[in-house]
Each structure stands twice: as structure tokens, then as C-alpha cells.
Design a protein around this nucleic acid. Structure first.
Length: 118
DNA sequence: TCAGTGACTGTTT
DNA sequence: AAAACAGCCACTG
């Protein structure tokens, strides 16, 4: 029996994003690689665009680019909401980027088990 | 069906 | 070091 993930590309992204621990952040590329396409980071970002249409809601504010920059903050409602959410979790933000990004970085490829094992 | 878009990343200039 | 180019794949019109 071949395991056939019924999970769509979106679902995989949401699944990983939801498992990001509080006070931690990850990058699109890390998620993309975790789901099997290390170079499809753009698709991860695109999936995040629909994050508000899925349940439960996805903490897209914990997903940043590899530079630790809040690249998607402009997509959040209000102004600086994404930054406030991150700061609320203990993450320090400066100039729209995460301080000590390497320290709060959470890599699903390391912290989580391979997707096939799920 | 084809073409355009996009919350990224790596390589090259 | 910074900017530009290319690759990548899924969704919409």
C-alpha cells in the first residue's frame, strides 16, 4: 500500500505553520523543503495568502523569509499587526526584521519528523 | 489552454 | 555589499 498524502500543497504548509512553537519563527524555504519542494518557497507564501480561509487559522506571522524579514506583514490587517503578534510571543523586532533570528529560528526539517512518517 | 502573478531563494553581475 | 536575473510551482482570469 503506497501512502498517498491526501494533503494538498496548501494543507502541508498550513500543517507545518501551525506546529511552529510559540516564540519561534520559520522560513518559507524551510517549509517548502519539508514538504518536498525546497525551491517552491513562493508557493508557500502563496498558500499563506489563503491562510485566512482555512481552519483553524494559521499563525502566518511566524513564517518569515530566510532573512528574518517580515516580508508578509503588508498582507496582515491593520498596521504592524504581524510585528505586534511576534513581539507578543517574546520575539524582538527591529526595522521589520527579527532580532536574533537564528536563535528563534525553528526548522521543521530538524524539529519535526519527516512528513512521510506522519 | 495560455499567460500573468506571487508573503522566496540561490546564483550571478 | 547590493542589485539584478533566473528557477520554481500553484492558482486565477
Amino acid at each position: 500500500m503506497k501512502e498517498k498524502p491526501e494533503f494538498s500543497f496548501y494543507d502541508k504548509v498550513y500543517m507545518v505553520a501551525r506546529q511552529v512553537p510559540k516564540g519561534r519563527v520559520t522560513s518559507y524555504g524551510a517549509i517548502a523543503k519539508y514538504i518536498g519542494s525546497g525551491r517552491s518557497a513562493r508557493m508557500v507564501g502563496w498558500a499563506m495568502n489563503n491562510c485566512g480561509t482555512v481552519m483553524p487559522p494559521v499563525p502566518a506571522h511566524r513564517v518569515l523569509n530566510k532573512q528574518g524579514l517580515l516580508s508578509g506583514k503588508h498582507h496582515f490587517p491593520g498596521m504592524g499587526l504581524m510585528q505586534e503578534l511576534l513581539e507578543n510571543e517574546g520575539i524582538e523586532i527591529e526595522d521589520d526584521k527579527v532580532v536574533d533570528f537564528e536563535k528563534v529560528f525553528w526548522d521543521p526539517n530538524v524539529e519535526l519528523k519527516p512528513f512521510k512518517s506522519l
